[in-house]
């Protein structure tokens, strides 16, 4: 299931994004040896602060197993600003109808590399799910193509899932332990149909915003330590005792009831 996190709703999903950045650390730093910034176990860069859309694939247990980051090519983007070496001096593509896909990854430790592409825990299935979501999200916005910064491993995985880049920009360029390349991807109904057929994904791949918030948004209040709870309780009891008018009494009662409800749950 895919959760689409744009700059408007991302703040509801701190824990999910943390998991995503942790997955990116395992993939891009540990496995691929890219020179990425990792802080507190999370791989994040300046582009994550520019309100990109992050597509997150979660498995049945709610764990993040894949993700992709999408940026416009009209503004700051990785190919223009960071990976320009790939373009061999050519200007970066800039178009409102071409988006950029970066940090495309799947959790290869958790997923089965050899399983059938139709098995939900296979690399192919999750890759397809992310690609279908990206394609549908792009088409909804009138976007027709994507340029994806990928490595040969991911390029192979895309071919296997029936989504081979139709061309490449510039030349493959060494980047850490691997080579980075800029593949051009088609965003069309035909492609979505092909991906869906191959992976046997038929329904809506997106979790609705409301369901996503109910299931994955950060919990409102962090649990208090028992001493803090006792002190808070004592304080509220004092407030209750010293209330001077009905309004104060109501307020104290209300907040005390809230606290007790929270303790029960």
């Amino acid at each position: 299931m895919i959760i689409s996190l744009d700059g408007i709703i991302a703040h509801h999903f701190g824990p999910l994004l943390k998991q995503t950045y942790a997955l990116r650390t395992r993939v891009f730093r540990d496995r691929l040896g890219w020179d990425v910034d990792v802080k507190d176990g999370m791989e994040m860069d300046v582009f994550d602060t520019l309100n990109p859309t992050t597509l997150v694939s979660v498995d049945a247990s709610g764990a993040v197993v894949g993700s992709m980051r999408i940026l416009q090519t009209t503004g700051h983007n990785m190919l223009a600003d960071v990976f320009s070496a790939i373009l061999q001096g050519e200007p970066a593509p800039r178009s409102p109808l071409i988006w950029e896909a970066t940090r495309l990854c799947v959790d290869t430790d958790r997923l089965n590399a050899t399983g059938s592409p139709r098995a939900h825990n296979s690399i192919s299935y999750v890759t397809s799910e992310v690609m279908i979501a990206a394609c549908e999200y792009a088409m909804e916005a009138g976007v027709t193509d994507a340029v994806a910064v990928i490595d040969p491993l991911m390029s192979r995985e895309l071919k296997r899932s029936g989504n081979a880049p139709y061309d490449y920009l510039g030349s493959p360029t060494p980047m850490g332990k691997v080579t980075a390349m800029a593949g051009l991807l088609d965003c069309s109904v035909e492609l979505v149909n092909r991906l869906r057929e191959r992976s046997d994904i038929n329904g809506d791949v997106f979790l609705s915003e409301q369901d996503a918030i109910t299931r994955f948004s950060k919990t409102a209040v962090p649990a208090l330590s028992s001493t803090a709870q006792t002190s808070l309780h004592t304080y509220l009891q004092e407030q209750l005792a010293s209330a001077e008018n009905p309004r104060e009494l109501r307020a104290a009662l209300w907040i005390l009831a809230e606290l007790e409800l929270a303790q029960q749950s």
Binding site: G7, I8, L71
Partner: peptide, 14 residues
Amino acid sequence: HLPMRSIAPVDWQC
């Protein structure tokens, strides 16, 4: 204000 935080067009329905 909100659509400026998106990369995709935002339908006002949302």
